[in-house]
Design a protein around this nucleic acid. Structure first.
Length: 491
RNA sequence: GUCCCCAUCGUCCAGAGGCCUAGGACGUGGCCCUUUCAAGGCCAAGACCCGGGUUCGAAUCCCGGUGGGGACGCCA
């Protein structure tokens, strides 16, 4: 049998992300998708998206479009799958049912599987009884001993039946790229159903049939699939197919170390999109949850992650989702975004706020770029920049009452501002260093601390007691606007 | 209950027998910068789950225990 290692060097990998559209794209799923995507991109391979919608009861079209949209938002583009097609189309399992049925029939034919006429209610009762007795239930093989005549009779009577895989005696081992060898004794594996009585395949069958047909070379998926793997290995063997490599990645937990769920807060990628996180921050954060490139660098661009990604950098233990660190990554990525990029991303929001000017991309590009640079390190979310733009680009100043009371409605301040206004009007421009020097000279002349003028000016000009460095702000707001706003509070 | 996986600061990771007096990041506390708020810089507190082995030497290897997680569906 050829090992995965050989395969890596022989041909580009083909990996897939195969979500079930029974819910939104969960951050855990997103990370699994990311690892697959990084692996494919790193090795010049193919990243396939396949929708496992065989649970027709719980799957929905809305969930499918939600998942696709979250994948797109994260930038996890797929080479084969919904919308783009590919050599193994279709990529929706419900459109591939004939393949699973044919595979099940072949397995029955070869004796690797058999028809099971047990009724679900009876099985449930047996399971409940075993559970009550405190022991684990495994299918008791009632139907494996049926004679060919009886099977023929029941088939003729069109009795509902499922197809079960016959688990042979022995042991099953497989190599996991993250954990090494894993062994299961087959007495712990029951004869599992591969085709339901309604003709739909179960996960085990469809996943193996598709992974074989789509020539998947590495199966990178969640840890929760590790106990499914021996069953699937058995299926590969029975089908005479090449077994892919497996890499099971640890789960993402909530702060209480329980599997991450809604009660821990936002768990779907869509919620983070709504909350205005940068997709590159999400990618960076998720990549480092359970994987390490080695070294001390923490902030990575998508390209840098692709360059460094290796499966053996994945750690074995589960990871707790730490949203404070996500916030930090978000801020780090905001600070690394060029101003023109920020402007482009924020165009709709700025427009909606009534602050847009077409000159931002032309004659005012330089100026607005400086404004954004000033606002950048203070934004925790990209959208924080939008309201902060108002005092610069418009005459909209929202005055914070507490700030006004504290810094402007103070005895003597109006007179000081009046003097300062005269100075400002006499200045050729508000170049920061010169403006600051002028303010300090004035403060000294009037026998007050520079801070009195600085704080009063800040509140008068931006309406808040916090802002970027005052003199940079004044320069970018412009002398006329600054003078106008000072005048409102001068005596 | 049975099987499987995992185990380093509160959290995410580094560490693949001596480089460990265990390193980085988030968070926390302090200081610096300073006109505010951020950003940035510096400092501090903070961990190898326990017990046995193996070895001259173990965070690193082995065994056991404990703890956590996962799986035991005609869900995926």
């Amino acid at each position: 049998m050829s090992t995965g290692r050989d395969r890596i060097f022989r041909m580009p990998p083909r990996v897939r992300f195969a979500p079930s559209p029974t819910g939104y794209l969960h951050v855990g799923g997103a990370r699994t998708a990311l690892f697959n995507w990084l692996y494919a991109r790193r090795h010049g391979g193919t990243f396939i998206l396949r929708i496992e919608d065989t649970d027709v009861e719980r799957s929905s079209a809305d969930m499918i479009s939600g998942i696709l949209s979250s994948m797109t938002w994260l930038g996890l583009t797929w080479d084969e799958g919904p919308g783009v097609g590919g050599p193994h189309a279709p990529y929706f399992q419900t459109e591939r049912l004939d393949k699973y049925r044919a595979a099940a029939a072949r397995l029955v034919e070869s004796g690797a599987a058999y028809y099971c006429y047990c009724r679900p209610e009876d099985l449930a009762a047996k399971r409940a009884a075993a559970e009550a007795a405190g022991s684990a239930w495994m299918y008791d093989r009632t139907c494996v001993v049926l004679s060919p005549e009886e099977v023929a009779a029941r088939e003729g009577a069109r009795e509902p039946r499922a197809v079960r895989f016959f688990v042979p005696a022995g042991g099953t081992t497989f190599t996991d790229l993250v954990r090494g060898h894993i062994a299961f004794a087959r007495e712990h594996i029951e004869d599992f159903v591969i085709l339901r009585s309604d003709g739909y395949p179960t996960y085990h069958l469809s996943v193996v049939v598709d992974d074989v047909e789509m020539e998947i070379t590495q199966v990178v998926r969640g840890d929760d699939h590790i106990s499914n793997t021996p069953k699937q290995v058995l299926l590969y063997e029975a089908m005479g197919a090449t077994i892919p490599d497996f890499a099971h990645v640890p789960l993402i937990l909530g702060p209480d170390k329980k599997r991450l769920s809604k009660r821990h807060g936002a768990t779907s990628v869509g919620e983070y999109e709504t909350q205005d996180y940068l997709p590159e921050a999400m990618i960076n954060f998720l990549a480092l949850l359970g994987w390490s490139p080695g070294g001390n660098q923490e902030v990575f661009s998508r390209e840098e992650l692709v360059e460094r990604f290796t499966l053996d950098g994945i750690s074995g233990g589960n990871a707790v989702f730490n949203s404070e660190k996500l916030d930090w990554f978000n801020q780090q990525h905001i600070m690394r975004l060029p101003a023109d990029d920020i402007l482009r991303r924020l165009t709709p929001a700025i427009t909606a706020a009534g602050l847009w000017r077409d000159s931002f991309f032309t004659t005012d590009a330089d100026w607005i770029g400086k404004v954004i640079e000033l606002l950048k390190p203070r934004a925790r979310k990209l959208g924080d920049i939008v309201p902060a733009l108002a005092p610069f680009v418009a005459d909209i100043v929202v005055y914070d009452e507490a700030a006004v009371t504290k810094h402007l409605k103070v005895a003597g301040v109006a007179a000081h501002l009046s003097a300062w206004l005269q100075v400002v009007e006499g200045l050729p421009s508000l170049e920061p260093a010169a403006t600051e020097a002028a303010l300090r000279v004035l403060a000294a002349a009037r026998g007050i601390k520079p801070g009195v003028l600085i704080h009063a000016t800040r509140v008068a000009v931006v309406g808040q007691s916090v802002s970027p460095g005052l003199f940079e702000v004044l320069d970018l707001v412009g002398r006329d606007r600054v003078a106008e706003r000072l005048r409102a509070y001068a005596s």
